[in-house]
């Protein structure tokens, strides 16, 4: 008897046996896990990269920044005037140390329009990235 015949013989015998089986609820357990994977995948697809809270924060910041510029009354023309204008508008305590610190703080904001511009550009880039990644996930 050659190997091919032995193979055929054993193959025939193997069809008669029963392999070890997993527990009764195995396929249900696997499918539950598969549904969980699918649910996570779906949630990931529909959830935007940048959440709602982030956009509320950006919106509020933009509104506040706008109000700030309007309140300064000088626009973007005189950067140091913004600081001095604000010092006049806000009640500042008479303590000289505190006043000096406050003045230094507003002085450091002298480049505000440029900062605002950068923030707006960065926010736009984030918005673009959000749209891009959201569309990539959806496919």
């Amino acid at each position: 008897m050659d190997t091919t015949d032995k193979d055929r013989e054993l193959r025939k015998m193997m069809k008669e046996i029963r392999l070890e089986k997993p527990g009764a609820g195995f396929s249900t357990m696997v499918m539950d896990a598969v549904y969980a994977v699918e649910a996570r995948r779906f949630a990931y697809k529909t959830e935007p990269v940048l959440g709602r809270k982030f956009w509320i924060f950006v919106g509020l910041f933009a509104i506040l920044a706008g109000l700030f510029i309007l309140a300064s009354g000088t626009g973007i023309s005189g950067e140091s005037e913004i600081a001095s204008g604000l010092l006049e508008r806000f009640p500042v305590p008479e303590f000289s140390t505190l006043k000096g610190g406050f003045a230094r703080f507003w002085e450091s904001l002298s480049g505000l329009p440029a900062t605002l511009g950068s923030i707006m550009i960065a926010a736009s880039l984030l918005l673009l990235a959000d749209k891009f990644f959201s569309s990539k996930q959806a496919t």
Binding site: L19, E20, K21, P22, F26, S27, V30, M31
Partner: peptide, 14 residues
Amino acid sequence: FSYLVNQYQDVVFS
């Protein structure tokens, strides 16, 4: 996918 699970679970498990 459950069809594939039922079809192959015995061999995979064994």
